[in-house]
Design a protein around this nucleic acid. Structure first.
Lengths: 337, 337
DNA sequence: CTATACTATGAAAGCGCTTTCTGAAAACGC
DNA sequence: GCGTTTTCAGAAAGCGCTTTCATAGTATAG
């Protein structure tokens, strides 16, 4: 507080005009090397840092990108955040984060992130309503979506992962390697695009292997251990028969494994289990979880790269789908000790 | 982009001066209700949002708090972030996040977060060097430290948790309930204050029970499964005898359990294990981990509260220590099925 | 040696707000 | 009914920068 050095302090100290200081700061024009050196010394001596808001106001650039999340606390976000932060920081952008879930309670619908405080927005599945998305699109504001495609009417790039083929690979494996015939699929939250894609992959695999599609075998897991636990417990008490569960994501797998164990079903002898994501805890589950590796950190990195291109007015892919990879551990029946 | 509405557009549209619009916006003075209504309508009609930088520049308030982390990807941060975001957002502050670990590679030492773009800073253990901390303290800039106290010379509030008593409780439990006599303690990274405190608690408990302190039983775990794994494997191959491991944190526990299992030691029959933090995965380990619950989200919440008080110039506790709680599961030998 | 083109710099106009100062009009007091 | 307060609103001065425009000085060409 007190007396921050301003650009004119630096100018005075080095005996030049503020224009010249600005030029040295930004490299926007050639400055005599000797003069530049004097300016740099003054900056150092005054430990001067340009005032971000003043810069923004004058240059009409915030040098900040915004990240709009549903729930910042989700485990899923951690690697994504790491990727986003790394690329943003490397490119000299600040990162403003807002979680819309906490905002829901707030009375004032202050637009937390937008044209007024960022150069562009990263929007995670469901974190922004279509109306606002449309508004941003109309004023040509740079936005990149993560894990969910935009309404067709809007031209907004999307970064996502190979959900369908990933799911197909893991279900293929359950069938081909372990002879599973009745495979449960646990959906994510309603409207979740990842989940819908994975379900497609699941059905595709069944079709490919001439296995019947039984709607009873598909149910809600909610990407959430408790719900998955309840669902599986219900299935078991209903006497539903199955020899494998593709849990939709790894979080579900935690609840699934617990429910199976409580019912005395052995994994993988009685029921094979496979997840999706390859979360940090997938390998520490017992048995270690066979799953599909989702390149989440990479999604974070790419999304920022695309957003920055957009901000710079460069060409951008409308959609980027990052590859997933089958990770075979033991919950499917492989590698038994 | 294109043509954002500005305050003067709103003023024109509602037939008042920009001063009045500003007053309606901020409630800084009484405005005739009828006039105010007209202004509000204009704001709505133009879907006007005040330009943050202009506001900042004029009012000398950024309405933003900065969070300086070492590694944003750490699992540990997730609940903390949730707490921080929730309180900040509720209080109308934006949250600017920067991870210093990624910045290390950058050539330019741009001060990512500071007086120039935030009203105050939350600094996590080790994320800022003492020089910068001192500078901020000297200019009276609001800073709150998380999980590490400031150098004595600086008067900076700290939010931390009851590490020592938490550690003591869990070691007490290992001794009292399970008769453990030779308990290993795995340290966190060097200089980690949490770890040092927990070690104190460990030693205190030994002393209280008249158990000898054997330096061989204390080693590096690094809060990191691989290192913990290596350390324990080494201890085992050295033929070191012990009947329990207090793993320092839950991350370590993952490596510890694996190492013990590989050596054919049963948990908890041969070796009892206990962690610290109560991470999300503590309950899904096999066996479920006995640990100490650290109120990490609470730390996040409190830190923001304190920081906001500081920003407002209110009185602040110099140090806040949040309580920890023993969580007994099965890795210590309790609740065996 | 003059005309032309650079080069390096400064002066000054904003960017979109907040806030102080000032004043007109309405309300009040006696 | 006149002076005094109160209420409401506008004018204008910045906040600390970037950027355009102008210009002095210097180099280059013919």
């Amino acid at each position: 507080m007190s007396t921050r050095a301003t650009i004119s302090d630096v100018a005075k100290q080095s005996g030049v005009s503020i224009s010249t200081v600005s030029r040295v700061l930004n490299g926007t024009a050639v400055v005599d090397e000797e003069t530049a050196e004097r300016v740099r010394n003054a900056i150092e001596a005054l430990s001067y840092t340009p005032h971000a808001a003043a810069r923004t106001l004058a240059s009409r650039r915030t040098n900040t990108i915004g990240l709009l999340l549903l729930d910042i606390g989700g485990e899923f976000y951690t690697p994504m955040l790491r990727g986003i932060e790394a690329v943003a920081s490397e490119a000299g952008f600040d990162l403003l984060i807002h979680s819309t879930i906490t905002a829901a309670s707030g009375k004032v619908t202050r637009r937390a992130l937008g044209e007024h405080n960022t150069d562009g927005l990263l929007v995670f599945t469901g974190a922004l309503d279509v109306a606002e998305l449309t508004r941003l699109n109309e004023i040509g504001f740079p936005v990149v979506l993560l894990h969910e495609s935009a309404p067709d009417s809007l031209d907004i790039p999307v970064i996502t992962i190979e959900n369908q083929s990933g799911a197909q690979k893991v279900v293929d494996h359950l069938i081909d390697a372990h002879g599973c015939k009745r495979i449960v699929y646990l959906r994510g939250p309603a409207d979740n695009e990842d989940s819908a894609q994975r379900e497609k992959g699941y059905r595709q695999s069944l079709r490919k292997h001439n296995l019947p599609y039984d709607p009873c075998l598909v149910a809600q897991g909610g990407y959430e251990p408790n719900q998955a636990h309840a669902t599986v417990a219900q299935m078991l008490s209903d006497g539903l028969e199955f020899d494998a569960i593709f849990t939709g994501d790894d979080d579900n797998a935690v609840g699934v494994i617990q429910a199976l164990r409580e019912a005395g079903r052995r994994i993988p002898e009685d029921v094979a289990v496979a997840g999706f994501d390859d979360s940090l805890f997938a390998r520490i589950l017992t048995p270690p979880l066979t799953t599909v590796r989702a390149p989440i950190e990479q999604v974070g990195r790419e999304s920022v790269r695309q957003l920055i291109r957009l901000i710079r007015g460069e060409e951008v892919e409308t959609s980027l789908v990052l590859p997933t990879e089958l990770v075979i551990r033991q919950s499917c029946g492989c590698n038994r000790q």
